[in-house]
Simulated assay, not measured.
Amino acid sequence: MDPLTIYVDADACPVKDEVYRVAGRHGVHVVVVANAVLNLPREPWIERVVVSGNLDAADDWIAERAGPRSIVVTADVPLASRCVKAGATVLAPNGKGFTDASIGMALATRDLMQSLREAGAVTGGPKPFSARDRSAFLGALDRAVMRLRRNASGS
């Protein structure tokens, strides 16, 4: 069986430290994927992957590896969609999960907002990241790790 792995779409991820905290507590391998070199804790269970090339290189790298034993941390809705289809557990930095049931609406909303911005509308952007979002993410990631571990042990 493949080991449980957390993939972090890291370039603009505000919850990397929270990922390290949860992964360290549970002994889970973390792969931090970015377009540039990021400073990471020096831990044997944290792996750095620096991709080069187009803007979607990190997304492509993660999507090619995500599967049922993966947790993907991303705010990128198209990447989330690809990973959900691959069977991965996908969490946004605010702790909200992307699922088969929610990804279609998330993609439609993203596309609508992009169309509005391209047409010149001022959409205001996302709300600021808060301590409540950080706390919700910590809880969601912890629950996701425990659920995948439980499912792997057959109970």
Rank of each mutant, 00 (worst) to 15 (best):
Leu40Phe: 13
Asp111Tyr: 09
Arg42Cys: 04
Gly27Glu: 06
Arg82Ile: 00
Lys16Ala: 04
Lys16Phe: 00
His29Gln: 11
Asp59Tyr: 03
Gln114Phe: 00
Gly24Thr: 03
Ala119Ser: 10
Leu79Lys: 00
Arg21Thr: 05
Val8Arg: 05
Asn94Pro: 03
Pro68Glu: 06
His29Trp: 07
Ala75Asp: 15
Arg42Pro: 00
Thr99Pro: 14
Ala86Met: 01
Leu79Gly: 00
Asp111Ile: 12
Leu79Ser: 01
Ala92Arg: 09
Thr74Ala: 10
Gln114Leu: 02
Ala88Thr: 02
Asn94Gln: 11
Val73Ile: 13
Ala58Lys: 05
Lys85Cys: 09
Pro78Trp: 07
Leu40Arg: 01
Val30Met: 08
Asp11Met: 12
Leu79Asp: 01
Gly104His: 06
Ala75Ile: 03
Leu116Val: 03
Asn35Ser: 12
Arg65Phe: 02
Val51Glu: 12
Asn39Glu: 09
Val32Ile: 14
Pro44Ile: 02
Ser115Glu: 12
Gly24His: 03
Ala121Leu: 05
Val32Asp: 10
Leu112His: 14
Val28Phe: 03
Leu55Arg: 14
Val77Gly: 08
Ala106Phe: 08
Val22Pro: 10
Pro93Val: 01
Ser52Tyr: 09
Glu118Leu: 04
Val37Phe: 14
Asn94Met: 01
Asn35Asp: 04
Thr123Leu: 02
Asp56Lys: 07
Thr5Glu: 13
Asp60Lys: 07
Glu47Asp: 06
Glu43Trp: 10
Val122Asn: 06
Arg48Ala: 13
Val50Glu: 08
Asn39Ile: 00
His29Pro: 02
Asp59Met: 07
Asp60Thr: 11
Ala119Ile: 02
His26Met: 15
His26Asp: 14
Ala12Val: 01
Arg82Phe: 11
Lys127His: 06
Ala57Ile: 01
Trp45Glu: 01
Val50Phe: 03
Trp61Gly: 00
Val31Ser: 02
Asp100Cys: 15
Asn39Val: 00
Arg82Met: 12
Ile6Trp: 12
Asp100Gln: 13
Val90Ser: 08
Pro68Ile: 07
Asp56Tyr: 04
Ile6Ala: 11
Gly124Thr: 10
Ala75Asn: 14
Leu112Gly: 11
Leu38Tyr: 09
Ala10Asn: 08
Pro126Phe: 11
Phe98Leu: 08
Cys13Tyr: 01
Asp60Asn: 09
Val32Pro: 00
Gly125Ile: 14
Ala36Met: 13
Asn35Ile: 12
Ala58Arg: 04
Ser102Thr: 12
Ala121His: 04
Leu107Glu: 11
Ser81Met: 15
Thr109Pro: 00
Gly97Glu: 06
Arg110Asn: 05
Leu91Gly: 08
Arg65Pro: 09
Ile71Cys: 15
Arg117His: 03
Tyr20Leu: 04
Val28Asn: 07
Ala119Asn: 08
Val122Phe: 04
Gly104Leu: 14
Val50Trp: 03
Asp59His: 02
Val31Ile: 05
Pro14Phe: 12
Asp60Glu: 13
Val28Arg: 07
His29Arg: 15
Val31Trp: 01
Leu107Ala: 13
His29Tyr: 04
Tyr7Gln: 11
Gln114Val: 00
Ala106Ser: 15
Thr89Gly: 07
Lys127Thr: 06
Ile46Gly: 14
Ala119Phe: 01
Leu112Glu: 10
Gly27Tyr: 01
